Amino acid sequence: MSWSEIALVALGAVVVGLLFAWQGASRIDRLHRKVAASRIALDAQLVRRASAAVELATSGALDPASAVLVADAAYAASDAGAVTSPAAALKMDGLDSARERAESGLTATLREAFGSPEAVHDLRAGPSGEVLEGLAAAWYRVTLARRFHNEAVAQTRRVRRLWYVRLFHLAGRAPMPRTVELDDALPHGLEPAGG
């Protein structure tokens, strides 16, 4: 082989390598966008659940002490979730620990306020049944949004662990995304009417 043939083969190898690097970087970028979009969707669902909890607390369906506790926990979750800037909503680090604790606290407070599945059934049959259905639907959407977000994070982390992604630093300076871990299990008897 002459030097020109060797140069042509080397140039072809470089072009193929650059093409794979470009495709890998594009894939990671798409995954990062998916994580950011799923986090924004999760934030919206958490806010919707907190407002549904406040609506339930003010509906008169709960006893006064439980209503105050639920409203307080919902406002604490809303305050912990206040986004200070648009860039904060696009972070890859999941929710901060204070927000996760506040959202888990709202879940625990609601679970405690409902008590048994029979009490939930009685609330559904009462005049505030529609408000309770709204809370159940919002709560179910939170569960789904968190699962979608955590799956997007898992996909991104799997791709970022590939040897060529790390070797060529294809993820750039983007931080490694984190999952959102909070207690969002529905109480027994509160499953949405459709599910």
Rank of each mutant, 00 (worst) to 15 (best):
A37L: 12
A37Y: 03
R39I: 08
R39L: 15
A41K: 10
A41W: 04
A41H: 12
L42M: 12
A44F: 07
L46C: 10
L46W: 07
V47C: 04
R48P: 02
R49Q: 15
S51E: 15
A52L: 11
A53W: 00
A53Q: 03
V54G: 04
V54S: 13
E55A: 15
E55Q: 15
E55P: 00
L56G: 02
A57D: 03
A57W: 01
A57N: 06
S59V: 10
G60M: 13
A61W: 05
L62I: 11
L62Q: 01
L62A: 08
P64Q: 06
P64I: 09
P64V: 10
A65Y: 07
A65S: 14
S66P: 03
A67T: 07
V68N: 09
V68F: 04
V68T: 15
L69D: 15
L69M: 11
V70C: 02
V70S: 01
V70P: 00
A71D: 15
A73W: 01
A74H: 11
A74K: 12
Y75W: 07
A76F: 03
A76I: 08
A76N: 13
S78H: 06
S78Q: 14
D79E: 13
D79A: 14
D79S: 12
G81E: 06
G81Q: 14
S85F: 06
P86Y: 13
A87D: 15
A88K: 11
A88Y: 05
A88D: 15
L90D: 13
K91C: 04
M92H: 10
L95Y: 09
D96K: 04
D96V: 07
D96Y: 10
D96Q: 09
S97Q: 13
S97G: 03
S97A: 15
R99H: 10
E100T: 10
R101C: 02
A102R: 02
T109Y: 02
L110M: 11
R111D: 12
E112N: 11
E112T: 12
A113V: 02
A113W: 05
G115R: 04
S116V: 04
S116P: 03
S116N: 07
P117H: 03
E118N: 08
A119G: 01
V120M: 06
V120E: 00
V120D: 01
H121T: 11
H121S: 13
D122N: 08
D122R: 14
R124K: 12
A125N: 09
A125H: 08
P127Y: 06
P127H: 08
S128P: 01
E130D: 11
V131A: 09
V131E: 00
V131L: 06
L132Y: 05
E133S: 10
E133V: 00
E133P: 04
G134Q: 14
G134R: 13
G134L: 09
L135H: 08
L135G: 04
A137P: 00
A137D: 11
A138G: 08
W139F: 08
W139C: 00
W139P: 00
Y140C: 09
Y140Q: 13
R141P: 02
R141L: 10
R141W: 01
V142D: 01
L144S: 11
A145R: 10
A145T: 07
R147N: 13
R147Y: 07
R147T: 12
R147K: 09
F148Q: 12
H149M: 06
H149R: 09
N150E: 10
N150P: 05
N150L: 04
E151Q: 07
E151G: 02
E151W: 03
A152N: 07
A154T: 12
A154F: 04
A154H: 05
A154Y: 02
